[in-house]
């Protein structure tokens, strides 16, 4: 296998290119002096970025989106982990029913779920706001979190947990000291996946949001007006650049921290 060492990085780069290509184009067009995305390019401009700064609603929408995404992903991961642990570690009455029902929310078109939740919130008199959006996002992300965390728990034997308890640790202590560290990568993965879904969710959010706007709602409704397209892609460009930088920064900090610790 040694002679194929280049294959992995090559494959990774290919996928990265495939995934990032459209984004590079969006960034390119965000500096293009034209409201339609076509070649040849018209000329360099930063006016879309200036327009961006003059649109305070966008900033508010961005804040709202971030808040919903972080909060709902946290709860989705937490609830998903609890459910996954219960399912993979215990047998109980209704287990199969539970795991089925828990996967249902991802098969129902989000639009239908949105209408259903809106009817429900109205029936019990809960006013719409970002919390209702967050609740909806937890419902749709819970199954994904369960799937990711469950996949890691499945198979990894319960021996470690039992050993820990034999050594006198309580069950909840074992969860904290043994189980959670083991499933940590899947917790992060579940959070990431939830966050990504939440960040770009439109159909469900449309029905569950009150007068607070999230970024997808704002962007999608702007797309009804062709002249607003550049603004929309500029937002996309900013989001992707900032998030990539954050990712790189956090990775660098982590390693720097590890090195400092060793030294």
């Amino acid at each position: 296998m040694k002679q194929l060492k280049w294959l992995g990085p090559f494959y990774y780069s290919l996928l990265a290119l495939f995934l990032y290509l459209p984004i590079l184009f969006l960034i390119l067009f965000s500096f293009n002096d034209s409201v339609v995305l076509t070649f040849p390019l018209k000329g360099f401009t930063i006016r879309w970025y200036q327009q961006l700064l003059q649109t305070p609603e966008l900033l508010a929408a961005f804040r709202n989106t971030l808040w919903v995404a972080v909060t709902s992903s946290f709860f989705a991961t937490l609830l998903g982990a609890m459910a996954a642990i219960a399912i993979s570690r215990y047998t109980f009455w209704g287990k199969r029913l539970f795991s089925s029902v828990a996967t249902f929310p991802i098969v129902i078109p989000y639009l239908v779920l949105g209408v259903a939740l809106l009817l429900f919130f109205n029936a019990i008199g809960i006013p719409l706001n970002l919390w209702t959006v967050g609740i909806g996002h937890v419902v749709i992300n819970l199954p994904y979190a369960m799937l990711i965390i469950g996949a890691r728990l499945a198979g990894f034997s319960a021996n470690l947990e039992e050993a820990s308890m034999d050594l006198g640790e309580t069950y909840w202590g074992t969860l904290r000291r043994v189980t959670i560290p083991i499933i940590m990568p899947s917790l992060i993965a579940a959070f990431l996946s939830s966050f990504s879904t939440s960040f770009d969710e439109f159909a469900l959010t449309f029905f569950l949001t009150g007068t607070k706007t999230t970024l997808p709602i704002y962007l999608y409704s702007q797309l009804r007006f062709p002249q607003r397209l550049p603004l929309a892609i500029t937002v996309a460009a900013v989001v992707i650049v900032i998030s990539s930088l954050l990712l790189i920064l956090s990775e660098w900090l982590r390693h720097w921290g590890e090195k400092a610790y060793k030294a």
Partner: peptide, 21 residues
């Protein structure tokens, strides 16, 4: 508590369902 306290569209708020823009 969070749900009820953070009610966005409180009573009497003047809300317009409008095309974005």
């Amino acid at each position: 508590l969070m749900l009820s306290a953070c009610g966005g569209a409180a009573d009497g708020e003047f809300v317009i369902l409008e095309w974005a823009g």
